[in-house]
Design a binder for these strands. Structure first.
Lengths: 379, 379
DNA sequence: ATTCTCAATGAATCTGTCG
DNA sequence: CCGACAGATTCATTGAGAA
């Protein structure tokens, strides 16, 4: 399968004298710009709209440094209703340019994704999956008042119900995933380091640049070579760069001319890859870390169990939440193990033991059994 | 802290002659039954509402490919609209019985969760997290036309914005998780095997029974012992069984009397865990405040003592009134610590140190000793 | 060259209490 | 309701610069 060349891949000639170039970034409002595109001309839409984060004050890290938040004007909306109107408008514009067989992806967080999903359904899109981007290195919750917000949600939808001819490269994905079906949760790292575009001062050029690996999975799973990919919120052109790399065509829209220019430069410099060379769906290795709480959830240790050291000199009590208590003090198996010995640190997995039929056994043996189970389940 | 006994734990006596039992399953419509409960009486709501209203009754039209597009859209609107009305009704009823500090969890899939989330926001709930239940053993996708649907989504929300006193047992969760804060994605197995309730024929009794481990995380993370947990769609009583096990109280509502009966039997047979394994413990946040002046009054620090940071780069002088001075500036240990570092804020307890026989020690160790004394004195 | 330490940072609706 | 302030709070990764 050859790489798309300029002009060669245009399938539906229209009245314009010259065929559209294969890679375009339009500067302007996405609804207005999409309205100028021919109807039913796009094979795949990927959209990363504003999330409407509704942030208020500053957030400081424990070291008192300030978190560089998304405080741009484009992410501010007067109300949920205003956000809904905005969402309805761009989704309708996108729908018009989608071929009947096209599908659409939208990424968001809990701030906006529920509204996007509801409107998708109300407009008659047909949700095929919601897919979780599970971040391997999310920003922590600095104040300890919520769970670490460690994922974002993507919705994958067909233009209408009963769409039966949409592209889903099931066999190829499965073959590239150790012959296991690809799941609806994808573990991927944030876009950092070299990949992250910087401005002249070494600061991030765009506040929400997505990792290319994420886009590669989207494009590889739900489009074919030479397909036309549309990104209405093109930003610094991640979608376009990956589309070109993977032999697809691309049209993006970006309101901010600085971002649009950066996107054009970036896409220009991309060299398409041989199509067969990318296999991004290798199974994510599970984090080696096993929380002690998981053994309790699994029923391997009961709350109320007494832990003791190898010489039965100290004991601690297993709590339902996976912490352990020694007298009035509650903490992790590691902290309490350290406390029991008067040390700064301790490996609770090897220090603490439980009574078994065959005598005292370190809880590390339970962890090993748990891991073995997990490995089996993954097969 | 004893295990909750029938009636003994009711905290707000009301006009009814007998206190409500600690574990109840009401048979009936959840909106009607919640309306009978006292307002602001519930600490935690967990709801697993029906997902597929559009597949019920006369709206069910599988594989009807010849439907006119307009009619089709109208059907969906009607169907979604009915689901929205239903959702709004039960959420409002739940909201009334929630204490101001209460939080609510809803679990769903892409069929319904976007509508639930939108309505939650529209009703003024405040989303704290969306949490992904990542299934370690999901059912495969048999047709190979989509990604394996390997997760469900939960929304965790406070009753209103700026709710600052909701329960989140951050420290305990972290201690049970290898001393790392718990993320918004939870990997847990489906409810199968022994745990899955069966009917007389060995068939599963309920189509969507949730694993107890999932409910255990929900209840352990966002409630305290003796709290009242409400489940408006009680089913076969998983929430109630786990609540009882963990020393919480419970009220559930279930429309189907077969399920309700099964739930009652199930909850009756649960034995609560030993109180010590679920007992709350004092976190750093909840520890009693100690004014720095109290250490001086107690003789633990003398006026005139020199304080310094861990690297002995700056020094401050302890005053008799409990303030400290740095050059001409006088202020609290925190203010002066911030000043010394050129920061906006500082925890003076950990920043400032005193010389001891064994070297430099943070004044926080003095505070800990003071608190220990106070504890002893209180006994 | 190699290893170690320290600093920086990422779509974040991130405190509680008292006056 | 607002302001002041005590004081509690972070994980994975990259990269620079020191040892």
């Amino acid at each position: 399968m050859g790489v798309t060349r300029r002009g060669a891949s245009v399938r539906t000639p229209r009245s314009t004298p010259r065929p559209a170039p294969s890679f375009r970034v339009l500067t302007g409002d996405c609804v207005a710009e999409m309205a100028k595109l021919p109807a039913a001309s796009v094979d795949l839409v990927f959209a990363d709209p504003p999330y409407n984060l509704q942030l208020q004050g500053d957030l400081k890290r424990p070291d008192d440094s300030r978190v560089d938040a998304v405080d741009d004007a484009w992410d501010k909306f007067e109300s949920f209703s205003a956000y809904d109107d905005f969402t309805r408008a761009w989704l309708l514009a996108a729908r018009r340019v989608m071929k009947p067989s096209a599908t659409l992806w939208v990424i968001g967080s809990y701030h906006n994704i529920f509204r996007v999903g509801t409107i998708l359904q109300d407009l008659g899109f047909w949700i095929l999956n919601d897919v979780i981007w599970r971040k391997s290195n999310p920003m922590p919750n600095f104040r300890g008042r919520r769970f670490t917000n460690a994922h974002e949600t993507m919705i994958w939808a067909a233009r209408e119900p009963n769409a039966k001819n949409y592209t889903f490269n099931y066999e190829a994905l499965k073959a590239g995933n150790e012959d296991v079906q690809v799941r609806s949760d994808w573990t991927l790292a944030l876009c950092t380091g070299e990949e992250r575009l910087k401005d002249g001062n070494g600061k991030k050029l765009h506040p929400t640049q997505k990792p290319e690996a994420l886009l590669a999975r989207v494009i590889l799973s739900s489009s074919r070579p030479d397909d036309l990919v549309l990104d209405p919120f093109c930003g610094t052109g991640t979608t376009g760069a990956v589309a070109k790399k993977l032999g697809r065509r691309f049209v993006g829209v970006e309101r901010d001319s600085v971002y649009a220019t950066a996107a054009r430069d970036r896409i220009d410099s991309v060299l398409p890859l041989p199509a067969a060379s990318v296999a991004p769906f290798q199974t994510a290795r599970e984090a080696p870390r096993v929380p002690f709480a998981a053994l309790i959830e699994r029923g391997m240790v009961s709350p109320g169990t007494t832990l003791t050291d190898a010489k039965r000199r100290v004991t601690a009590l297993v709590r339902a939440d996976g912490a352990v208590s020694l007298g009035d003090t509650v903490g992790s198996i590691h902290r309490i193990g350290a406390l029991a010995q008067g040390l700064d640190a301790c490996n609770g997995w090897t220090f603490w033991h439980v009574e078994t039929a065959t005598g005292l056994a370190p809880i590390d043996t339970l962890r090993a059994a748990f891991r073995a189970e997990q490995m089996q389940a993954a097969e």
